[in-house]
């Protein structure tokens, strides 16, 4: 399962289209980090709207992506977490401290816009 990663300006937009296996998730992490380096992107938006489950492994991988992206000088915004999924994640004890979140892709772009203007 490939996750399309699009470049828009200085941003990368990755849209996860369906449930990913652990192996797919690992491959996605590597591919995205490579793209951050090669494209010199300043921010990454990961859209997880289509993910009906965000379990401990998926959450951990997303957190790793955010941290490693930051080490390469870019921010990560996670968008599209569904209300039911959000509730389940916090009940399970999972959190994404330090990872920016927004309602959807549009809000994610607006967030990056505000952050950039603030400098």
């Amino acid at each position: 399962m490939m996750v399309p990663i699009l470049k828009q300006g200085h941003f990368l937009i990755a849209t996860i289209m369906a449930a990913l296996s652990d192996e797919d998730m690992r491959q996605f992490r590597e591919a995205l980090l490579d793209r951050v380096v090669s494209s010199r992107a300043t921010a990454v938006i990961i859209d997880v709207m289509a993910m009906d489950v965000l379990d401990s492994f998926a959450t951990r991988t997303l957190r790793e992506i955010a941290y490693m992206t930051r080490l390469r000088g870019a921010r990560t915004v996670l968008v599209g977490v569904q209300p039911e999924v959000a509730l389940t994640m916090v009940q399970l004890g999972l959190h994404l401290e330090g990872v920016a979140t927004a309602l959807d892709l549009e809000e994610g772009l607006a967030y990056l816009d505000r952050v950039n203007r603030r400098g």
Binding site: D22, D52, V53, L54, D55, S56, F57, Q82, P83, E84, V85, L87, T88, M89, Q91, L92
Partner: peptide, 26 residues
């Protein structure tokens, strides 16, 4: 997920059940 939905669980409970299965299977 399919079974829980068929049994009439709420959408939040369906996600809870699917996530619990995911954790236990892993």
């Amino acid at each position: 997920r399919a079974l829980a939905a068929e049994l009439g669980f709420s959408s939040t409970d369906v996600v809870r059940i699917a996530t619990a299965i995911s954790e236990l299977a892993r």
